[in-house]
Design a binder for these strands. Structure first.
Lengths: 252, 252
DNA sequence: GTAGCTCAAACTGCATGCAATTCGAGCGCC
DNA sequence: GGCGCTCGAATTGCATGCAGTTTGAGCTAC
């Protein structure tokens, strides 16, 4: 483990761009910006005190991470992953995080274990707060683990895919229940400290899998990608007043 | 498998930027641009008939993929992964590609199997050509597999990490031997067609692992990240004429 | 001949400006 | 009242320009 460089930032070019990226990333995963929210370059630039050029660059980076959708000549929007993409993201995440804990099991210092425990404590305290903050903290626990591998590539991929999953959670799982997740985090820390590779990998697997299935109970066409898809089943009953109202409300 | 969108391009915003990205990506993995090669924005812009703004944006994307290193106020250079980063990339790649074949085993259409075989045939024909082309084709085989999962996220990650590994190969393994790889590819196709999940996962694992170990035989300080490191052992013998010549030659 | 210094050229960081495209409010038609 | 159309405002795509930083070639001193 010794001898590994600590080059924390993988890309994140210049300061101004990365500041905007971080801010937007956080806003997105805390649901301050919902999926589908518009992100005009002008507005971003003005808000962060930079030119459009920089805001544009930041949007490009976030698009590369899958948090933002960029279509030519159109306003950038916060990504709205489909149900299938969400499931794929979780599948990938499971494999990546199993790799993380495999590398980490039995190799954590006491200081690192303390840091992990402190983080989970913070998660615990945040249970009273908003769901958004709980979700963010839970996600950051996983990213913290990834950091401890000292593998910049792994950190990047785990972060990215975790953020994507975060986005999904905010889309598909309305009543988020993070209580159980906290206990699962504690169990993972314990198994890591004990150095039981197989057990910690299994724990991580089931943890993530249960988060995924809690969220993605069913293909859930509600809240799906496209309004038209949502309304398709109603189309048969034609001109129902409710349907019309819905389109108007949603269009705004 | 049905019902999955075919949205091939994940980010790759506007045309001009993505054209440059693709060109550079290919140049890098074919070693036309060696690790460490300078990539000035002006020159790129001029070469591709666009402004610096666009070239810059493209470099940003490639940096996000890990193919390019971007340091503030400095000329962008083709990334030079450390040995440890290379090993990490392969570890991640193994997990991701095991996931690919797990999803694919027994689910490929005849047309897809034919496509895969055709690709391997192309690899076979390319054995006479340059190493660079062989490496590229071998890499593209894996990306082709990823595409068949119809999972854009998986495609993106596999592509990225495969390109990174390509870069590594060009750094650390001078005499590339791709002959065996071709047979391994054929074996994987066969196992996929047969639908033997466990076998194909094991095959993919050993295939990638052997590629990695063939390349990364030892931490190999030669050809490493920094000239100074390479020369350190020679420093003791002081003022040897040879050493001086080396520095001059490399500096150009 | 070597080491250190200086300064101009090269390059990046960023903002601004213009053309092309999209968006959406308002208007006429059914 | 609802639907489609049209045109101005909003927005993106991209190039260019200016300021600050790095680079390295040439010069000087030893």
């Amino acid at each position: 483990m010794a001898g590994r460089a600590d080059s924390s930032k993988t890309a994140e070019s210049s300061d101004k761009v990365s500041v905007i990226c971080r801010a937007l990333r956080r806003a997105i995963i805390e649901q301050a910006l919902e999926p589908g929210a518009k992100l005009p370059e002008d507005a971003l630039g003005e808000r962060f005190g930079v030119s459009r050029t920089i805001a544009r660059h930041a949007l490009g980076q976030l698009a590369a991470e899958g948090l933002v959708e960029l279509r030519r000549n159109r306003i950038a929007v916060v990504a709205t992953p489909s149900w299938q993409e969400a499931r794929d993201a979780f599948d990938i995440r499971i494999e990546l995080e199993r790799l993380v804990v495999r590398q980490l099991a039995g190799k954590l210092t006491k200081a690192q274990i303390a840091e992990l425990n402190a983080h989970v404590d913070a998660e615990d305290r945040a249970r009273d707060g908003t769901d958004a903050v709980s979700i963010r903290l839970a996600t950051e626990f996983h990213i913290l683990l990834a950091h401890m591998t000292n593998s910049p590539i792994l950190v990047r991929y785990v972060s990215e895919v975790a953020y994507r999953c975060c986005l999904t959670l905010s889309l598909y799982s309305r009543p988020h229940s993070s209580e159980c997740a906290i206990n699962e985090h504690r169990a993972i820390i314990a198994a890591l400290a004990k150095g039981d590779v197989d057990k910690v990998m299994a724990l991580m697997h089931s943890h993530l899998d249960s988060v995924a299935t809690r969220a993605l109970v069913a293909p859930s066409p509600q809240r799906g990608r496209d309004l038209l898809d949502i309304l398709a089943p109603y189309a048969d009953e034609a001109t129902g007043e409710k349907v019309v109202k819905l389109t108007k409300a949603a269009r705004r």
